[in-house]
Every structure is written in C-alpha cells, then in structure tokens.
Amino acid sequence: MSRYIIVIVVSILITSSCSVNKYVSTPKEISTFVNGMYFKGEKKKGNSLDRFFKGEIIAVEENGLHLLTFGKIDTVIYLPKNDVKRGKISIALSSDKPGKYGAWGLINFLPFAHGVFGVFSLPITAITTGTIISDAARGGYRIRYPKEIAWEDMHKFARFPQGIPSNIDLRDIKRILPE
C-alpha cells in the first residue's frame, strides 16, 4: 500500500517538475536570447498572496525595477528597490532538452524497476530524479540577489539595460515566446 502512495506522490512530483519554465533559455539558445532574464523573489512585506513575485526583468532603475508578470494579460509592475528582500535571476536552464527528462523519470518510477527494494530506493529515486528534472526544467544557472549581485549591476540582465526607451508605453510590452 505504501508503495502505491509513493508512486502517486512521485507522479505528482514528476508532473510538476516536467513543467518547463518557458521564460528561461536553454544553454544552447542563450546566445540568441533577447529577452530580459527571469527574476523570482520575495518582498520584505506582504501576505502570502502578494509577497512573492516573478517575471521578466524589463528595466532596472536606481530605486526600483520594472517586471513583466505573466498572466492572461502580461503586465509590467514596478517593484521599489526597498521592497525587494531577495530573489534569483535565472540565466539559463541547465539542460538543452529539459522536456526529455520527464520520460526518463517515469521509467525510474515504474514499480518493476524497484522490486522488493522499492521501499528504500523509491523515495530516494523520487528525490533525486525530481531534483534533476526540476533543475533541468525550471532551475539551472542563477544569480542570487543581494548575495551575489548588487542592485546597480542588475540592469544588464534586463530587456532594456539602457532603461525604458522613451518611445515605449509600458502597456505595450509583451512576452512573445520563441517560435
């Protein structure tokens, strides 16, 4: 019975891990990546609903940054520098083929692959494979703010490192995913 519970938990884990962060480039394509980097972080204040933020860095100014958040309608929000507690800038995924890991993971979790030792190996396999898949699909190369980068240096990871061009209306900014 416990084995079935583990399989269900692992399946959920795999499913969630397989969801590739489509806003972060693969290493292979990083050289032609023309968007701002993905920034995910936590504010100093706020409730569980609005304490966390994530999106594409559009421009970083001296006292705050413009972040393109994704939803039914992409929206640029402004985050004052003083409100940002910490965050991670995703530079690239660690895999060129992040979607392929899911299949390998599922094979790992098939009951016959573990036999009677499943009681030991399955949980560890779940953690390991889940971590790898998650890392390939959603993690990868990151820079942590403020530990590894100063605010003044973050502009170079924005879509507009020069600041928001005067001719552009923030409401017109969208994220167009690669073809």
């Binding site: 190996s121 396999t125 790898i132 890392d135 993690g139 990868g140 990151r142």
Partner: peptide
Amino acid sequence: VLLLLIPISCGISKI
C-alpha cells in the same frame, strides 16, 4: 549512489 546524485544534480548551477 542515489544519495550521491542529489548534490551532483543540485550543484551545477552556481555562477
């Protein structure tokens, strides 16, 4: 072996 894989899988992304 599996335990060994955890740090390997997690430790590749530092810049």
